[in-house]
Simulated scan of single mutants.
Amino acid sequence: MFLLYADESGTPGGPDQEHFVLAGVSVFERSAHWLSLELDKIAEKFDPQDPASVELHGAPMFAGRKFWRKFEKEDRLEAIKDALRLIDGRKFRIFASVVRKGAISPDDPVHYTFQQIVTRFDHFLAREHVHFRNTQRGLILFDKSSKEAPIQALTTQFKVDGHEWGRLRNMAEVPAFIDSEATRLIQLADLVAYAIFRKYEKADEQFFSIIERKFDFFGGIQHGLNTAI
């Protein structure tokens, strides 16, 4: 089974931010534990006695908020980069959708971006079956949020009634919502979403440059990144 750990960056409503990002990192189930251990090593640098208490989240690490206030900015930013470097494009794939909210108005940014990443992930699973005889189901794991109910409803709708391009055919179940404190890979998804958000909202590519070649790619075409800007 392929697991897609997903999170958002930016706010879907309000005028304070122009962009909204939904992004995920696809990991084969047997690789998830190894990747989590590598992220633990990064967290351990900031609290060797209790690394499990250190949550890797882009916005507070960048700004130096709360727990991160006591660490030098250079160390905080390098930790973000170290985590993003763990995403080996041969083993793991990024799926993301970024929108400028004004460009898709009056459409809902959550609906738009979720449809993009779930269908692209579904197409990836189909491609694995057709081209590589690797038949696997997929499961999307989101950070817990107030958007759980609408996203669950959208998934059911896409499976039963279809979406703009067909129906979901390779999902094992509707998305699961888990606390980011419980899994490093949701935290990694947060860092990916933040890296994309910084590029489009702030024209800051220092993090995006690390992941720009790690989006799902096949046949000379980048499938993993959708932009509506």
Rank of each mutant, 00 (worst) to 15 (best):
M1Q: 14
F2D: 02
L3S: 00
D7V: 12
E8F: 15
E8W: 11
G10F: 14
G13T: 10
D16F: 10
Q17M: 15
L22M: 10
V25A: 08
S26G: 11
S26M: 04
S26T: 11
V27D: 02
A32P: 09
W34T: 01
S36W: 10
E38I: 00
E44V: 07
E44N: 12
F46S: 12
F46R: 13
F46G: 12
P51F: 07
P51G: 15
E55N: 06
H57W: 07
H57G: 03
G58R: 14
M61F: 02
W68N: 15
W68M: 14
W68F: 14
E72N: 12
E72M: 06
K73L: 09
K73C: 10
L77H: 15
L77N: 15
E78G: 07
A83F: 00
L84M: 06
I87N: 01
K91V: 03
F92Y: 13
R93E: 04
I94V: 13
A96H: 11
A96Y: 03
A96K: 14
V98R: 07
V98I: 00
V98S: 08
V98W: 04
R100P: 09
S105L: 08
P106E: 01
P106F: 03
D108R: 13
H111A: 00
T113N: 12
I117F: 00
H123S: 14
F124D: 01
A126C: 06
E128W: 03
H131Y: 04
H131L: 06
F132W: 12
T135C: 10
T135V: 05
T135F: 12
R137Q: 08
L139I: 13
I140Q: 03
F142K: 09
S145R: 13
S145D: 05
K147Q: 07
K147M: 14
A149H: 03
L154R: 14
L154A: 11
T155Y: 06
H163M: 10
E164R: 14
G166C: 00
N170D: 08
N170C: 07
F177E: 02
F177Y: 14
I178G: 02
A182F: 15
A182S: 04
L185R: 04
I186P: 04
Q187R: 10
A193K: 13
K199N: 08
E201R: 06
K202D: 02
D204Q: 02
I210K: 01
I211F: 05
I211L: 08
E212M: 01
K214Q: 08
K214N: 09
F217K: 10
H223T: 11
N226W: 05
